[in-house]
Design a protein around this nucleic acid. Structure first.
Lengths: 111, 111
DNA sequence: TTGTCTTTCAACCAAGAAGTTGAAAGGGGG
DNA sequence: CCCCCTTTCAACTTCTTGGTTGAAAGACAA
């Protein structure tokens, strides 16, 4: 199971600039220049960030005519969700078992 | 809104070793030695990983008698979930609007 | 008190990440 | 064709990270 992908995705989203990019791309595709506008950094730096997001599969840029817009790939959210929910669920089951155990001990004291 | 916390959490989970720790802690609390056992790295390295997880709020270690067990803080999952769902929803709404637009154009051709 | 186990501190190293500058390709539109 | 805009490549700097070794505290039990 794409552990390496998960690593790339988490790492990609660990950067505030890249998270902001994703947030803005959730509202719609954008050209690199539009994306870069709010940031006080060179265009090359923005391209670097985009490459990180691309290699993580968070974002794609269709081949074609030149201002190639940046597109958010929503399915990466499913990937993270999968990981998170799996572990959240296990932890919560554990709590339920503990609660059940405590309830049992309470129902049947001093055995 | 704790952007810095989100950064720390994503960064903490961007490491495979730390993700594995979280996965194992979802099954139940563990002492540092138990946690460290599968990894081919020094105990100090494990403590370093734990500090990263602690500072991100992913994990706590209750003060008290000495082998202080490591405990997974499940609510960080809510934090990530919040961020993910917020953006996923926005992106999906966009798709729905686009679909509606396309349907409209199809219903009323050549206008 | 004397070990023994747990935990932390400090210094160091190699590799990677984020940013810079500068230069070079690529691709349309006039 | 030439210009301009977009995109990429390369080298360099600075800071962070994951790991090491070695040593020192802390805490508990005998």
């Amino acid at each position: 199971m794409a552990a390496d992908t998960l690593t790339r995705v988490f790492a990609a989203l660990a950067d505030p600039t890249r998270r902001d990019m994703v947030a803005r791309l959730a509202a719609g595709d954008a050209t690199v220049n539009q994306l870069a506008e709010p940031y006080r950094m060179t265009l090359q730096a923005v391209y670097k960030h985009l490459r990180v997001l691309e290699e993580a599969g968070v974002v794609t840029r269709p081949a074609g005519p030149q201002p190639r817009p940046v597109h958010l790939e929503v399915q990466v959210f499913d990937l993270m969700d999968g990981w998170i929910e799996r572990h959240r669920r296990r932890a919560e089951q554990r709590y339920r078992r503990l609660d059940a155990l405590l309830a049992e001990m309470e129902a049947e004291p001093d055995v």
